[in-house]
């Protein structure tokens, strides 16, 4: 464990907590893409298959449980909670995210480190996570007014993967044989997808104006 990875995990945890806080306290999911939340629940479900088979550390198991429970409960809130579901704007959240699942799965079948079920599901979760934010970014472009919590949520989600890139660089230089192109490239693609959001988020913060994404 290095500081970059710990910071990355804490930032990721913060993004999930910000979202849960928003949904639970103000009972609203305005501006949040259910499709991105469903994709993230699938990412965690396919990535943490080894939750009960490989014990790495208490921290690792605990964080996996937190991410699994939080992502599925967010999906439940938006789908079924009698008040929250009313604020879900399904007419705007129209990204056909199922079109993301199949290509990622096919790619995982072709490009992976080992042709086993667990490894293919793990690789699938990496590719899927890289594109999972797309429905949310599309929704942000459509709903002009991005409230603070939603903006912070997306920012933290992008920041966590950026910190992971620093973690991979650190591990590459400090650990022999630590070379994982699949993880690095999908992590890089994921972070690049946030690039323009980061730019506008930083501009709004610097000029102290409301976050607006160009149509």
């Amino acid at each position: 464990m290095n500081i970059f990875r710990l910071a990355g995990d804490m930032t990721h945890l913060a993004s999930v907590l910000v979202l849960l806080l928003k949904i639970h306290t103000i009972k609203s999911c305005a501006g949040i893409s259910l499709k991105t939340q469903e994709l993230y629940a699938l990412v965690f479900a396919t990535r943490y298959l080894d939750l009960f088979t490989d014990y790495i550390s208490l921290y690792n198991t605990l964080m996996k449980l937190i991410f699994l429970v939080s992502s599925f409960s967010i999906v439940w809130y938006i789908r079924h909670h009698k008040i929250v579901r009313r604020s879900y704007d399904k007419d705007q959240d129209t990204f056909r995210h199922y079109f993301l699942v199949l290509p990622c799965f096919l790619l995982a079948l072709v490009i992976n480190e080992k042709f086993t079920v667990k490894e293919i599901m793990w690789t699938f979760s990496l590719y899927l996570e890289a594109v999972a934010i797309l429905p949310q970014l599309v929704l942000l472009q459509r709903t002009r007014n991005i409230d603070n919590l939603t903006g912070q949520y997306v920012f933290l989600l992008g920041a966590y993967r950026s910190l992971y890139i620093l973690n991979w660089i650190y591990r590459y230089f400090t650990e022999p044989h630590y070379v994982h192109w699949i993880t690095w490239i999908s992590g890089l693609v994921q972070t690049l997808l946030y690039a323009d959001f980061f730019y506008y988020y930083f501009q709004s913060w610097k000029n102290n104006v409301k976050l607006e994404l160009p149509a």
Binding site: R5, D9, H12, D50, D54, I56, N60, M63, K64, F67, E113, K114, E119, W122, Y164, N167, H177, H180, T183
Partner: peptide, 10 residues
């Protein structure tokens, strides 16, 4: 062991 170590990240 290498595979086991490989998935030590979240």
């Amino acid at each position: 062991m290498e595979t086991f170590l490989y998935h030590d990240e979240l």
